[in-house]
């Protein structure tokens, strides 16, 4: 098929399919996020688990825009299902950066793919912005949990944790992406479907 750089229906359908798969996985992981400690661990599990479908997705990407659209849609889905709109904003920006990174590797390079994945996945981290930047407002509506709980969560998440979580998210993204490429090699390439 000719590659004229313009997104066609096949590309857009692929974006839709992989967004759906990633969203289902996120959703399953996020269910556990209602347990307080798991909420913090979302930045660990989501990037690691979505790495496999995402790396498969990257094998289908040969044109500019697909990563960005996937990120915008993931951000929008997160927003609608009750995370925060920060995910949409951060996801859009990080998606754009990831596009450039993956393009720099001519849409083939393994490590560019892994890094693009890690960067694009930081919308997950953006979900905590509400707690960091607006902690008072965030908890004013959650007063009924008792000061103890609020202290526990804010204790777990002081402002300096914000960059730490970003780092954790990025590292887990790299790990997830790396696992993704391993699985890709072990299964999908061997099976001839990637």
């Amino acid at each position: 098929m000719k590659n004229d750089g313009r997104l066609n229906a096949k590309d857009l359908i692929n974006v839709g399919i992989y967004t759906a798969i990633c969203a289902v996985i996120c959703c399953v992981v996020a269910m556990t996020g209602v347990i307080p400690i798991m909420m913090v661990l979302l930045v660990v599990f989501v990037p690691i688990l979505t790495g496999i479908p995402y790396m498969m997705f990257l094998t289908k990407v040969r044109k500019f825009g697909m990563i960005l659209i996937l990120n915008v849609l993931m951000g929008a889905l997160m927003w609608v299902t009750g995370m925060s709109y920060y995910a949409l904003i951060v996801g859009t920006v990080s998606g754009l950066i990831a596009e450039f990174i993956y393009r720099a590797g001519s849409y083939r390079s393994k490590w560019c793919g892994i890094i693009a994945y890690a960067v694009s996945g930081i919308y997950c981290w953006a979900n905590y912005f509400g707690i960091f930047f607006n902690a008072e407002a965030y908890f004013s509506t959650r007063q009924n949990f008792g000061q103890e709980y609020i202290d526990a969560v804010t204790g777990m998440l002081p402002v300096w944790m914000c960059p730490v979580l970003l780092a954790v998210d990025l590292i887990c993204g790299v790990i997830g992406g790396w696992i993704g490429t391993k699985v890709l090699k072990k299964h999908f390439e061997k099976a001839g479907i990637a």
């Binding site: 857009l12 359908i13 839709g16």
Partner: peptide, 15 residues
Amino acid sequence: TDKLTIPISVIFRFF
């Protein structure tokens, strides 16, 4: 743009 609406409709169809 179609670039958003086509993927969104595929997501609905694909869940």
